[in-house]
Design a protein around this nucleic acid. Structure first.
Lengths: 149, 149
DNA sequence: ATTCATGCAAATCGTTTGCAACCCA
DNA sequence: TGGGTTGCAAACGATTTGCATGAAT
């Protein structure tokens, strides 16, 4: 996982300033045990550290982090984007198992579609750069306690 | 592909009324050559047939169709939902190739993840009900004309 | 006749933008 | 110093909701 030093170097190298709000948002993302936070989750935590931080700033910082590949965004069909710090820069994205009963999101490490990508390039002339996979179903816990919801 | 008769039967069977706006939206979805229409595309076409139809109605009808599995929704990361009539009721969804250069969306028929689903159930106890795959890259045409955009 | 569905307008929600003040390099 | 950044508030666009009217069964 990326650390504070690497983070500030990346910002500087790309010509961006290392500002208070950027540091705070980075800390929130890297230190929070909550995963897949949305902008307002991040804002709430950020305000605990820097009470005068504005919502617009959080959106702008998250967009910048995404552009710099520090973060990537995730759509869980709940009307807002969610954000995740990238673990590494090897270009391999992980995917998500989403429980339709309790809403829990689990991560799936496998690199799923390599063979398929080659096939697509051959047959369709479409060069694959990235893929996102969401898998919906029922998690182990909800299978055992169907009455929970 | 589902036809008008089947459509009205499904509505009735589920206890919903066969209304003008529902017929119009169904016709728009099934007759338009535009695929992956968003709500305002649908509204525009629907108004050509029934000029007094309201936006809220279109949203309500699309949500109903989705609930009835007549339609499913698609997120192309452009800030609105897009809708597609289901081709069949076999539960198999198709997936999408999205060109990052020209925005074109192509469909991919393959049923991608069957083996993986079995693996997930075994190792994680997570019962898979559905999956959505989006593949990003560059289409054949844009590869040949890199200057287009 | 009764219930469900509609159209309209206002409300909401997430996100973006304009702009003057501010702060890092 | 000076331009990138910020905070605030207003603007925005997609979607939802309240409600009185209207239509399907």
């Amino acid at each position: 996982m990326i650390n504070t030093n690497e983070f500030s170097n990346i910002l500087k190298d790309m010509g961006y300033k290392l500002t208070e709000p950027r540091k705070v948002v980075f800390d929130v993302l890297s230190q929070s045990r909550m995963t897949h936070m949305n902008a307002s989750d991040v804002l709430k935590r950020a305000k605990e550290i820097k009470p005068d931080i504005g919502a617009a700033t959080v959106y702008r910082v998250l967009a910048l982090f995404e552009k710099l590949d520090l973060v990537y965004s995730l759509d869980l069909d709940d009307g807002c984007s969610r954000y995740e710090l990238r673990r590494s820069f090897d270009g391999h994205r992980h995917h998500h198992l989403i429980c339709e009963s309790c809403g829990k999101v689990m991560e799936l490490k496998e690199d799923l579609l390599e063979k398929l990508e080659i096939e697509i390039e051959k047959t369709k002339g479409f060069v694959v750069k990235d893929h996102r996979v969401k898998i919906y179903g029922t998690c182990k816990k909800c299978r055992k306690n169907p009455g929970m919801l």
